[in-house]
């Protein structure tokens, strides 16, 4: 992922808020990137742009050489489906679906995965997270750490190259935080690019590179 001179401005009725300014960086596969900074420094905005969720910005953004800043909604959706997996602070698991069904959710729109293969694939991902005995449970029956690992399994559903995690351990205790960061690190060793936003200093033990944002700019 290559971003160049990314600028994001929020226009309120009273003022202009510069969320990001002159942000340039390259994210490579096989590496763990930690984005850190105070609240309001632009971390989540940057992650939204990297995840193709935010499209209203200036600058250049390329994924594997393809300029995604000019793509339409359908094309961006395909990129998100194939290339990017998300992990959120609040998990965002569908409470009406069992654990393995939550993991299957991204597969429903992936025509490359056959219907008969989905459940097996989802179960394998959950096993990989060490939660085999929880796969038929609903989110309410899972602890915070378990829910986050199911989220991680969901993020891997379509075998993306990039994992974007927004405060993945924000609601977890130390033990579960360690488990989640360990899993993320494993993914890097498997060749994926992990970009995680975090307030926790624990992430420094796992990250290959630390990006600090201050006032919307990368601080060196």
């Amino acid at each position: 992922m290559n971003i160049e001179n990314i600028e994001k401005i929020y226009q309120t009725t009273k003022e202009k808020v510069v969320a990001l300014s002159e942000v340039t960086y390259e994210f490579k596969k096989g590496k763990f990137y930690a984005i850190m900074g105070h609240s309001g420094s632009g971390k989540s905005t940057l992650l939204s742009i990297l995840g193709c969720l935010e499209t209203n910005y200036t600058g250049s953004y390329k994924i594997e050489g393809k300029d995604v800043s000019k793509l339409n909604d359908e094309e961006l959706s395909k990129i998100r489906m194939k290339k990017i997996g998300f992990v959120f602070q609040d998990y965002f698991l569908d409470e009406h679906l069992k654990a393995y069904e939550n993991v299957m959710l991204p597969m429903l729109i992936n025509s490359e995965i056959k219907k008969e293969e989905r459940q097996e694939k989802a179960m394998n991902l959950i096993k990989k997270m060490g939660l085999e005995e929880r796969m038929n449970h609903y989110p309410k029956a899972l602890s915070g750490g378990e829910q986050q690992r199911i989220c991680l399994a969901r993020a891997l559903a379509n075998n993306p190259d990039y994992i974007l995690a927004d405060e993945p351990t924000g609601n977890l205790d130390e033990v579960n935080e360690e488990k989640v960061f360990t899993e993320l690190k494993k993914l890097c060793k498997e060749g994926k690019c992990v970009i995680a936003v975090s307030h926790s200093n624990e992430i420094k033990k796992y990250a290959d590179e630390i990006i600090t944002l201050k006032g919307g700019k990368i601080v060196k």
Binding site: G51, E74, S77, R80, M81, K82, I84, F88, I109
Partner: peptide, 12 residues
């Protein structure tokens, strides 16, 4: 937003 992050487009 979750669906969007999974790759669901607006029409879906």
């Amino acid at each position: 937003e979750l669906l969007k992050s999974c790759g669901y487009n607006k029409e879906e």
